[in-house]
Amino acid sequence: MPDRAAVGELAAGVIADLVTRKPDALVGVATGSSPLPVYAALAQRVRDGVTDVGRMRVCQLDEYVGLPPEHPQTYRAVIEEEVLRPLGLSAESFLGPDGTADDLPRACADYELALRDAGGVDLQLLGIGSDGHIGFNEPCSSFGSRTRVKTLTQQTRVDNARFFDSLDEVPWHVVTQGIATISEARHLVLVAAGESKAEAIALAVEGPLAAIVPASALQLHPHATVIVDEAAASHLKLADYYRTTYAAKPDWQRL
């Protein structure tokens, strides 16, 4: 894709196509900067009357541990601001883990059950960290991991400090869907833009399957789609082949 906006438009189209076929689809949403153009493009489709998401359900990928519910940087608050409100979705359409629970392991197990009881995730939207993490599965996370508490790396905390008044305010711990949990979604859609993501994308798509690059687990998934702009694709050895296969994709074959 030529730029971030085009990445967002294409990914939004994938979600819209899913919801057209399955109006009550459960869509997993991610936070961070990469998915923002997707949400903006999807909201524009809703405003234009092109796509109806009234029955769509949304589930959360991860959450900080210990932030009070009223804190503006809880991921629940971010999703409310960036996804639920622009799409006109109610709180009843939302599933998320409890980062304030007294018994966090139990809260993680409860979220696994909630996802299962909801019928499983139809499409999980993902970003990617500069170190290759997905969700908050930091490098060397197990490919068999389930929803659990993780300790953030210092680099992730530094990356996220821009959303807080200081680095000291960034929590050390999060609840995150594990790699095995994420991989149970029927369709994985990873979006990325910018040169800063180029190395991670190359390692995830073309590198060895390795826990040090958690996103490389997408290589094992039967339906994984990676949508990137030209800058994020700049380290891919087979970029020309990917462009050719996309251009020659049959009309009947969805992303």
Rank of each mutant, 00 (worst) to 15 (best):
L84S: 02
Q60M: 15
Q155N: 13
T244H: 13
P72M: 08
V228Q: 02
E138S: 01
R85T: 15
A217Y: 05
G178A: 04
T100G: 13
L238C: 11
A12R: 02
E199C: 14
L18T: 10
L125R: 02
D168C: 10
G178D: 02
L61A: 04
A204Y: 00
V19L: 05
P214I: 12
A233Y: 08
V191N: 00
Q155I: 14
V7Q: 01
Y39N: 04
D168F: 09
A161Q: 08
I227A: 09
S130L: 05
V226A: 00
T74F: 01
V83I: 04
A107I: 08
G99Q: 06
S234D: 11
F143D: 01
P139V: 02
R162G: 11
V175P: 07
S141L: 06
E206P: 08
L115E: 00
R47I: 14
V175E: 04
T156I: 07
E195M: 12
G99M: 09
Q44N: 08
D48P: 04
A193C: 15
G13W: 04
V228K: 02
R106T: 15
S234H: 11
H71W: 03
T31I: 03
P250R: 05
W252Q: 13
A211R: 11
C140R: 11
G135E: 00
L10A: 15
E112K: 08
A91P: 02
V27K: 00
V58I: 15
I134A: 03
D102I: 14
A107N: 06
L218Q: 03
K197T: 12
C108D: 03
S33T: 14
D131L: 07
A215H: 03
L255F: 12
E112A: 09
R4K: 10
A248T: 14
S234E: 12
Q44A: 11
R21F: 05
P250D: 04
D229W: 01
A109M: 08
T245E: 12
E199L: 15
D3G: 11
P86F: 10
P37N: 05
L26E: 05
A43N: 07
P208H: 10
G13E: 04
A185R: 07
E230D: 15
N137I: 11
D3M: 10
P37H: 04
F163L: 14
V14Y: 13
A210M: 07
D48T: 04
S33F: 11
L167E: 07
P69E: 13
D168Q: 12
G135S: 01
L255P: 06
D48N: 09
V121I: 15
P86I: 10
A198S: 10
C59L: 02
G119F: 07
T100P: 08
H173C: 14
T147Q: 05
S34C: 12
E195Y: 12
G99D: 06
L126K: 00
C140D: 13
L67Q: 04
V189T: 05
L115V: 05
Q219T: 09
R45I: 03
L152K: 05
L255N: 03
T181W: 04
D62Y: 08
L87P: 06
T244D: 13
H187P: 09
D131E: 09
G132W: 02
V50H: 13
T51V: 14
P37V: 07
A210G: 09
V175L: 14
V175Q: 05
N160H: 07
L167N: 06
P37G: 06
T100K: 09
